[in-house]
């Protein structure tokens, strides 16, 4: 490009030296400006309706470039005979070429960075779906199989001879719960009230197992019920709280589930008693980590899960943003 420019200027009757200086200065300043544009657009991608801003910006930069290179060229090559005249008459041509190049660079950058961002969003979406599948599997494996399922069956076995009606009821509840877990999650988002029904079923079964020890409490605001949340998000928290509470302390265990809508977020807190002497039981990390990760993948935010460990209580607070856009995105993905 530099060489072409030198030849061209020579052809316009300028001495070799002047051509070389002019080409170098024009090209280098233009390249620097292009880099500036690329770097800016990498971090700031304008919305579609703001594209006109980019054009204005290119015009502005072109003006600056013309003024600056003009000043520099006079300084460097102004002493050549006829060069000043040539520079003056070539200004409009230089301007249009500069604008064209800067415009092209801006356009390419916008397209390139947009497609990169799109790729990242897509990646996040697939990761989110994958993780929700993993969560489903994890639930099957961890919560149903070992302790929960066999102990529930053991409770039913005991009830059969002493309270047959309750045994029958528990078989029903266990079946409903199992069905809920195995149901395919075609809809990534469900109403909070639906998740709540599922939670209640789970709590009912656990209450039969643990009797008076387990005291679940729910404090749910009316507006929270219709909020759309990712399926199977709150359940692992509840499971954690119960496991932690029942096996980490002795005596009665109050598990509190509280939900409010605050600042356009559904804020859900799950609290369980906690004994500061105890080590975290095995495997408590996974439930929380997967919730954290899922929220990150869905909303690209890291600040949605908060853990407060106090002297006698352990509270996990999650905040779920309004999800109109997320729902549409997930519908588009499943369609």
């Amino acid at each position: 490009m530099l060489a072409d420019l030198v030849l061209m200027l020579k052809w316009f009757g300028q001495p070799w030296e002047a051509s070389l200086i002019d080409s170098s200065i024009s090209t280098i300043t233009l390249v620097l400006l292009s880099l500036l544009i690329m770097n800016t657009l990498r971090f700031y991608t304008p919305r579609r309706e703001r594209y006109v801003n980019i054009l204005a910006w290119c015009l502005f930069l072109m003006g600056i470039w013309l003024a600056f290179s003009h000043w520099l060229l006079i300084l460097a090559a102004g002493h050549f005979e006829g060069y000043r005249q040539f520079l003056k008459s070539s200004m409009p041509v230089r301007g249009s070429i500069g604008l064209l190049i800067l415009g092209c660079i801006a356009l390419i950058s916008v397209v390139w960075f947009n497609s990169e961002e799109q790729k990242q969003t897509d990646q996040r979406k697939t990761d989110a779906e994958k993780l929700s599948k993993e969560a489903e599997l994890f639930k099957l494996r961890q919560q149903l199989q070992p302790h929960f399922l066999f102990n529930s069956l053991n409770s039913i076995n005991a009830l059969i001879s002493i309270k047959p009606d309750e045994a029958r009821k528990m078989v029903q509840q266990l079946s409903d719960f199992l069905r809920g877990t195995m149901r395919k999650e075609e809809n990534l988002f469900i109403r909070f009230s639906d998740e709540l029904e599922y939670l209640k079923l789970y709590l009912e079964i656990e209450k039969v197992r643990f009797g008076y020890r387990l005291k679940p409490q729910m404090d749910i605001a009316e507006e929270a019920l219709s909020w759309k949340i990712p399926a199977l998000l709150v359940q692992p928290l509840m499971e954690n709280a119960i496991k932690f509470g029942l096996y980490g302390t002795t005596g009665e265990v109050t598990i509190l589930l509280r939900a409010r809508v605050i600042d356009k977020h559904l804020v859900v807190a799950v609290m369980n008693p906690f004994d500061a002497d105890m080590q975290m039981p095995e495997g408590t990390g996974f439930g929380l980590n997967s919730v954290k990760r899922r929220l990150y993948l869905l909303f690209a935010r890291n600040d949605l899960v908060e853990i407060n460990k106090e002297k006698n209580s352990f509270v996990v607070v999650i905040r779920i943003p309004a999800v109109e856009e997320a729902i549409e995105a997930s519908r588009a993905a499943t369609a």
Partner: peptide, 27 residues
Amino acid sequence: DEPLARSIIREYLQKYPELEIVQECSD
């Protein structure tokens, strides 16, 4: 720790009158 789990053992032990449950413990 589960009351019903203790209850089933108690039930199965009824067959053995010579075996006496002196206490049930929940932890």
